[in-house]
Amino acid sequence: MNLKRVSTAVMALCLGAGMAFAAGEPQAERQALMKKIGGSMGELGAIAKGQKPYDAATVKTAVSTISASAKDFPNHFPAGSETGMDTAASPAIWQNMADFKAKAMKLSTDADTVLASMPTDQASVGQALQTLGADCGTCHQAYRLKR
């Protein structure tokens, strides 16, 4: 009985740890961060296109999310995470890690610059979007396999 209980507990522990491990896979972590950045770009895009009215709080949240996510993003490319889980990461990342980190940091600092002089209307949100979008393109050009 005792042995059975122990083994059940061990199994539960293993299972729990296994689940936590799956959610913590670097590929999943970095994909989630990209989704957050993409979602925030979408919020800004809706305002820039005039589909949603300008709203200072929405803009601030979106740009802050982009800054924080971009800063954290390059921390999720450890050795061994080059492939798997549908990753679109290019092998070039691991050959040029310093440049890759610099490009992610540029998005973060550009987002901080936008926050420092907050866009006040549709047009200035559009300008901010162009700046941040150029950073997306520059990094995706070098380091993302998906076109």
């Binding site: 993409g38 162009q130 393109g137």
Partner: peptide, 12 residues
């Protein structure tokens, strides 16, 4: 603009 409809960007 380089943006997809869901504001992903072009790559490669």
């Amino acid at each position: 603009t380089g943006f997809t409809p869901d504001f992903d960007s072009a790559g490669g």
